[in-house]
Design a protein around this nucleic acid. Structure first.
Lengths: 339, 339
DNA sequence: TTGAAAGCGCTAACAG
DNA sequence: CTGTTAGCGCTTTCAA
């Protein structure tokens, strides 16, 4: 290794042994043309000198960076970070790295993340849409150029793009029926923006659940919010001040569920005696709050792994028909919803 | 753009206009040699064709990937993910991307992450040591080759490597004195492994705090754990079963604090009446638990930003003397520690 | 069995 | 003002 250079190149090895670069290259790739003696000699030196192929050079040559861009609405909630862990695990097995970008729930940032990641020549993207995203034109270039793309959780263009989701409708129905079975009758739902599939589907599940229990749908009990803590606090507060307030609430995600819990307590109401609560959250946080929160747990790690698998399917088989993988959720009953 | 190619190159533009590649290159870099007319024509076409320079080619040429490797003990706790957000923000401003690897608190994984990231030719590393890390040889290669390296939170080799930490001793002393002022006298501390600076420093702060309050140090009240939920649960359980059990506990980080909270409740003890609790956590989680947790809040986002700044200092000024930036923490008093 | 040369996309020194 | 050439590190024909 020359001074000032932190990596050895084929050239360095070639010079040291006194053969050509191509001989070294072939030896390291176990090319049968090279004599065994030479091959061993070269491989030994390469190991000693700590040679690793320069991925930039390889990338240039093969037009493949072995990098995947991942765009998530935020980095700091457990939901996304654990999905990312799942993606990373599968990527690592395949020798890929992931480049993470956060859209901060903003369409603008999502668009620029797509652009920037493409600029870095990632081989494709795995994306969860931002909350604001209602137009999908920024993904057209990928679809048109057949650049691998996978959506998870919040998805679009499912006819053209593979995706991983959970069975949201089923989950919301399970929650509604669980409330009913435990004696709650005025069941409210704090939803997210209409254009998000997760919100729509959970709404459908909520309505279907009500119907199957023989409960009438009261429009007052379905409120929308922007899925931030503030939005959820406001929505909860609104619900609690209704002339006929709900005796049960379910929140569309963990941010909403936690905010709702705080707000119910702030109103001096007991959970679950006066208002029951169920959320969409993960194991850990559900058990740390008081009372422990009944919730639909997402298989987050598995969502990530599955998204990565779909991604590699696309890489290996670019013309396969896009599939949608639907994972199941589990209703874990804790104190917050049982009198 | 040729079919099958998802990116335009200088060559494509050159051919289309009928000039040489270097003319195109110069025009796009606003080189004064090129005529204004030609420059404008080329830039216009480049914009239309959505040309972006190939970072692989640039990287090869300049030997600079504009990528930073980041190694954290885990990805899923808010502490690290929000530090990463901070790093990312500064990196983005500089046009750098970050490559994230998780050591899962394992020395082995930390070592292989260092190797793998170097293989990808990141320009340097920003690292928080794993819990197991007691030998630091895997960083020697970076130091020797003057590859930029920055540590944060859990640090080592501070004479040779820039680092960002919080004033742990001060924080632990604040906690101890806070307990004392609120009438608690048997103050316990659940520490981490001895070799970690954060554990050592907080222990010193704890002892110093006791002394300044005129309290004797009781070795029974200082227990070590491996900073996992299980380890913390066990440690807490041990403390609560002492013949003379503590009336106040502080946990070294949020994982420990939450596990301690659950365990205290499980023992049927009231917080803070029977056992007070303080943790090292972040805003959000401290307020979601019940009772709200008094805690030392880390300026996590700022830690990340500062680490990135130190990193770029190293890039821009490789021979500057390594500095250590010490950030302050804040004691936020909530219900868990005030009778 | 090995070497020379081209090319991946780009910049910069050197020519014209 | 513009073109030619070399070279960053690597693989892969084509020659020898």
């Amino acid at each position: 290794m020359e001074k000032g250079k932190s990596h050895v190149s084929l050239k360095d090895l070639a010079r040291e042994i006194g053969v050509s670069i191509s001989t070294v290259s072939r030896a390291l790739n176990n090319h049968p043309d090279i004599s065994l003696a030479m091959t061993l000699k070269i491989q030994k030196l390469a190991a000693e000198r700590n040679y690793t192929p320069n991925p930039l050079a390889m990338g240039l040559l093969k037009q493949a960076t072995r990098m995947i861009g991942v765009i998530v609405p935020d980095l700091v909630t457990h939901f996304y970070s654990s999905i990312i862990s799942g993606i990373e695990q599968v990527a690592e097995e395949k020798g890929y790295y992931i480049l993470i970008a956060s859209s901060s729930e903003s369409l603008q940032k999502e668009i620029s993340s797509v652009e920037n990641l493409l600029k870095t020549r990632v081989e494709g993207l795995i994306v969860c849409l931002s909350q604001e995203t209602q137009s999908y034109a920024h993904f057209d270039r990928l679809i048109r150029n057949n650049i691998p793309l996978v959506f998870f959780d919040r998805v679009c263009r499912t006819g053209e793009v593979p995706s991983v989701v959970v069975d949201n409708m089923d989950a919301a129905r399970k929650i509604t029926r669980h409330f009913y079975k435990n004696g709650f009758r005025r069941i409210a739902y704090i939803a997210g923006p209409d254009h998000l599939n997760i919100s729509q589907e959970r709404t459908r599940g909520y309505l279907s659940g009500l119907e199957s229990c023989g409960l009438d749908f009261d429009p007052e009990l379905l409120v929308k919010c922007n899925m931030s803590s503030e939005g959820a606090t406001e929505a909860t507060s609104h619900l609690l001040q209704l002339p006929k307030r709900p005796d049960a609430i379910f929140g569309i995600n963990d941010t909403v569920a936690f905010a709702a819990m705080k707000e119910i307590k702030r109103h001096g109401l007991r959970i679950p005696e006066e208002v029951a609560l169920v959320g969409f959250t993960d194991e850990f946080h559900s058990t740390v709050v008081d009372p422990a929160l009944t919730s639909i747990t997402h298989p987050t790690f598995e969502i990530g792994k599955e998204a990565a698998r779909l991604f590699f399917n696309r890489i290996e088989n670019p013309d396969a028909k896009p599939v949608q993988v639907v994972l199941n959720t589990k209703l874990v009953v804790r104190k917050s919803s049982v009198k």
